[in-house]
Design a protein around this nucleic acid. Structure first.
Length: 916
RNA sequence: GGGCCUGUAGCUCAGUAGGUUAGAGCGCACCCCUGAUAAGGGUGAGGUCCGUGGUUCGACUCCACGCAGGCCCA
């Protein structure tokens, strides 16, 4: 029985647990950071390091966070943490989008019938409470993810000062002439006399009239004889005919002129037979595009013309291929109307009655109007066909009655090509858009977008700060009026608009500049929430002293090209001509393993809170960071499990490194680079190369390269090579030997920077490991700074020599595997190795004699000139000829190496160690 | 239907001014160790580089058309 020398070895020791148990560790760590005021300490760098502002796009204060929120906030946190470790001053002020229709709708649902009994002000108070509830929830959820920031003082779009900034920005846009009032159709419930948002619409089947109507052609394509020619339109809303101003043709479709009952009818060719039968004779054919600018007589109003226009949305599947256009009563119609500069009559009042504009139908409700109009058309012979149809039709969610589209007065921001649009496009050019295709997307959207309708007929929002003269309806656009409103909002919030008389918002003794009246009324509409969030750069970056305008970076999902990136750009450019950001970084959307979006029906939804509870925030973060976020990001249980594997491997490698530093005090034992052993200098050089690559990846926001780089290094370079082959030295050398201290110095010299590189990614684990790290430390790893590893000097020759040795090792392992599988030996230490190096390697090997142990993990290596024949295993490989057999040498019972100097079961090295 | 984007091993990612048998890590299989041990080491098997057509002496890389998916519109 050999003596047990285990106690005499320097085996690794550490209390850093192998099992992370993140769900328990993380909340404790969060408490500790809060007590230590880590974030506040980072903020004390103001005025010292460079300032770098990431401006948070506000999530909507409704519901719990989903995995998309988690992705977004983790990436932001990463950017901030990277900046902190660079020594920058980089406050993160999170925000919430608090106003808007979804909250309003939730509160209305909760209220039910009570809604009608409470005042606007009371209703708004309930909405505020609702928003506050979810802000609190989401705040805690974000904090739990390890996102550090000014959580105690976030920005809210329902803060008074923020609300007042809407007024200020609106004023500035107004004064530049960028704001105007115009008409636009919206969903309207004539029972409730109210505008409806899209989310308040429910679709049910409804039976409507289905009629085909003739419009007499009075001016058309040249080669068409105008005599007795009629365009046939199909509609299910006859009541909109009085508002008709145009007929739309599909530009690419073919239209035939058919003879039928002494009339000649224009119909899309592919639809002709279903309307007038197969037998109708076609006498001419035209492309839709040829009807652009044609004139038709309005069947109900002789003398009034409708113009021929072109539209891609014209449906060639049903109807006649000619669409009746009433810009005041349809979304498509409206856009077409804007494009062709058509008039926009709205001969229907807010209760659904025709106005005088509807001529003979005036005073009639549109429901009766349908019948009356059909009758009238029949009388005058302009009705080709009358039927009814059952189709899906929008209804009011409250009263369940059908709704209509009806143009009403709205407020717009003008996005004209010689104004805001041009300024915005110029500003876009100066911004750094990442990834680079992003600029194409934002540019083409800005190029194509229509004027911005900023008014909404809702309650929960910031009122549009307009005061009208009650007598002459003139807008009171004087600077002092806006300033008064702004001041009131700043002091009392936008709620005051709903609580106070109009005089409260006017300068003393204000009189209408137009008619001198002193009677006024407030605008009822509120701002589009995109306007509100679009001014956050003013409301937050300019108004908070810890921040500055413009932001260095905005970081949001790619949907924000239409949303926040754009609304922020327009408000900013409108006031300053400049973009509110220097860089815009976009990420993709979360999808499942098959690349499909998350949905309840597919059952592939991943809940970040569940992941945090089961696996920990660090694992969730590691998943985020190891994914390439520039396009869609996949998540699934398998993907998360692989992430757990990566996490474990990183953790264990850290643990092993810590374990081998148990008796290492950097101050006392650190061996300077020049005095370190060859292999230590080699690994440090490799590490420095990696370190630089990783910092570069960080700098360029290629975070997934950071993770892959570090992980790869830890697995390939450290775990399977360096740390493995150095066990002999670490365990068996004298604790204080120069060699052992050299290797500990290398391990320490790598571990600390590794933890720093990992700190932004897995802040909990890095902090925990940092606790166990010896040497001088900050109170938290998150207060550390990256360094440049100047003390490590790269020597290309040295690197090259070791790379060659590693090639030898790689080849030798194949031979060793053969020996193992043919049971020649079990461990590398048992082998006696014979190598005939290939040309160019011989000198390297001979000059590396003292390092051969690290290549072969054996003390018995023979560099020979010719292959020998009597070995159990041999193989010719690229780097040379290899042969091996089980060594005849005796095994040292302490270090388990086989060597010729073993006496009484112990080798010379071990004997010396024991005797010292 | 339109604009923008994506498609390399089971998973996460490399790879191209177009050039020999497409790389890594994880996972998987088999083996070793038991002094990193609910760890560690070794070897190995996995890919019609979404498809089709084209340009080219040669295409994962360029072009066209598809297919699948994503975001935003209609």
């Amino acid at each position: 029985m050999a003596e047990d020398f285990k106690e005499t070895l320097n085996l690794p020791k550490t209390d850093f647990p192998m099992k992370a148990n993140l769900p328990e560790l993380e909340p404790k760590m969060l408490e500790r950071w809060a007590e230590q005021n880590i974030y506040e300490k980072l903020m004390q760098r103001k005025g010292k390091g460079e300032t770098f502002i990431l401006h948070d796009g506000p999530p909507y204060a409704n519901g719990d966070i989903h995995v998309g929120h988690a992705l977004n906030k983790v990436l932001k946190d990463l950017v901030c943490r990277y900046n902190w470790m660079k020594g920058n001053y980089s406050p993160f002020v999170p925000g919430w989008d608090c106003h808007g229709q979804p909250i309003e709708q939730q509160v209305e649902k909760q209220l039910g019938e009570k809604r009608k009994q409470i005042t606007q002000a009371e209703f708004r108070e309930l909405c505020r409470k609702y928003a506050e509830t979810y802000i609190e929830r989401q705040r805690n959820q974000f904090i739990r993810l390890g996102v550090l920031g000014t959580w105690g003082k976030p920005y809210l779009t329902m803060d008074k000062k923020y609300e007042a900034t809407n007024v200020k920005t609106f004023k500035e846009l107004y004064q530049k002439g960028l704001v105007y009032r115009g008409k636009k159709p919206i969903y309207w419930c004539y029972k409730d006399k109210t505008a409806l948002a899209e989310a308040e619409i429910e679709y049910y089947d409804k039976t409507s009239p289905s009629i085909k109507v003739l419009f007499k052609l009075i001016e058309g394509p040249q080669k068409l004889n105008l005599n007795n020619v009629y365009a046939v339109i199909w509609t299910t809303t006859p009541w909109t005919l009085p508002a008709n101003v145009a007929l739309a043709f599909h530009p690419d479709a073919s239209y035939g002129v058919y003879e039928k009952d002494e009339k000649r009818l224009i119909i899309a060719e592919e639809l002709a037979s279903q309307t007038i039968g197969e037998e109708a004779r076609k006498i001419a054919s035209f492309k839709g595009a040829e009807f652009e600018g044609s004139k038709f007589e309005h069947p109900l109003f002789p003398g009034r013309n409708s113009v021929g226009v072109l539209a891609d949305f014209v449906d060639l599947g049903t109807g006649t291929g000619i669409v009746h256009i009433a810009p005041g009563h349809g979304e498509d119609d409206y856009h077409l109307g804007v494009k062709y500069n058509l008039p926009m009559p709205v001969p229907v009042d807010d209760e659904g009655f025709f106005t005088d504009e509807a001529g003979e139908f005036s005073g009639m409700h549109i429901n009766n109007g349908n019948l009356a109009i059909i009758e009238r058309l029949k009388e005058i012979g302009m009705l080709l066909e009358s039927d009814s149809i059952t189709h899906s039709y929008p209804h009011c969610w409250r009263c369940k009655n059908p709704v209509i589209f009806r143009a009403t007065e709205q407020w717009f921001i003008s996005v004209s090509s010689d104004g805001l649009r041009k300024w915005a496009l110029d500003a876009i050019e100066k911004v750094n858009w990442l990834p680079e295709w992003s600029i194409r997307r934002i540019s083409s959207m800005v190029e194509q977008r229509p004027d911005w309708c900023i008014s909404r007929q809702r309650s929960w929002g910031v009122p549009i700060p307009i005061i009208y003269c009650a007598d002459c309806q003139t807008v009171q656009g004087e600077e002092e009026v806006f300033n008064t409103i702004e001041k009131r909002f700043e002091e009392y919030g936008a709620d005051s608009w709903f609580k106070n008389d109009v005089q409260f918002f006017l300068p003393k003794n204000h009189k209408c500049s137009s008619c001198g009246s002193n009677r006024f009324e407030k605008e009822d509409d509120i701002f589009d929430v995109w306007f509100e969030s679009g001014i956050s750069h003013f409301a937050v970056l300019r108004n908070r002293e810890e921040l500055q305008w413009p932001a260095d970076i905005y970081l949001e999902g790619s949907d924000q090209h239409r949303g926040w990136f754009q609304s922020s750009l327009l408000t900013s450019v409108g006031v300053t001509m400049e973009a509110p950001y220097k860089t815009v970084l976009t990420h993709g959307f979360i999808v499942d393993e098959e690349g499909r979006k998350m949905s309840k029906s597919l059952g592939n939804v991943v809940d970040p809170l569940d992941v945090v509870e089961r696996l920990g925030a660090d694992v969730l973060r590691l998943w985020v960071v190891s994914s390439d976020y520039s396009s869609d990001i996949a998540v699934s249980e398998q993907i998360l499990q692989r992430t757990v594997d990566v996490y474990r491997r990183i953790r264990n490698t850290i643990r092993f490194m810590l374990g081998n530093l148990y008796d290492f005090e950097p101050d006392k034992h650190f061996v300077t680079f020049e005095k370190q052993t060859s292999i230590d200098r080699f690994i440090l050089m490799k590490f420095k190369q990696l370190y630089k690559q990783v910092l570069e990846a960080y700098e360029n926001y290629r975070f997934h390269n950071v993770v892959h780089g570090i992980h790869n290094f830890m697995v390939v370079e450290l775990s399977s090579f360096y740390l493995d082959v150095l066990k002999d030295r670490l365990y068996a050398d004298a604790p204080d030997s120069q060699e052992r201290r050299s290797t500990q110095s290398a391990i320490y010299g790598m571990l600390k920077p590794i933890l720093k590189l990992l700190a932004p990614i897995i802040p909990f684990t890095s902090e925990q490991a940092y606790d166990y790290l010896p040497g001088k430390k900050e109170e938290s790893i998150h207060l550390e700074l990256f360094d440049d590893l100047d003390w490590i000097k790269i020597d290309e020759d040295h690197l090259e020599r070791w790379e060659m040795l590693l090639k030898v090792r790689k080849d030798y392992l194949k031979v060793y595997e053969m020996a193992k599988s043919s049971s020649v030996l079990k461990t590398m230490m048992e082998a006696e190795v014979f190598i005939v190096p290939s040309e160019g390697l011989r000198d390297t090997l001979i000059n590396s004699k003292q390092d051969l142990y690290f290549i072969f993990t054996s003390r018995n290596v023979n560099i020979i000139n010719e292959p020998v024949s009597d070995l159990p295993v041999s193989q010719e490989l690229e780097s040379g000829w290899y042969g091996l057999r089980k060594s005849n040498a005796e095994k040292c019972n302490r270090c388990w190496n086989y060597s010729s100097d073993v006496k009484e079961g112990i080798c010379l090295r071990c004997k010396e160690v024991l005797s010292s």
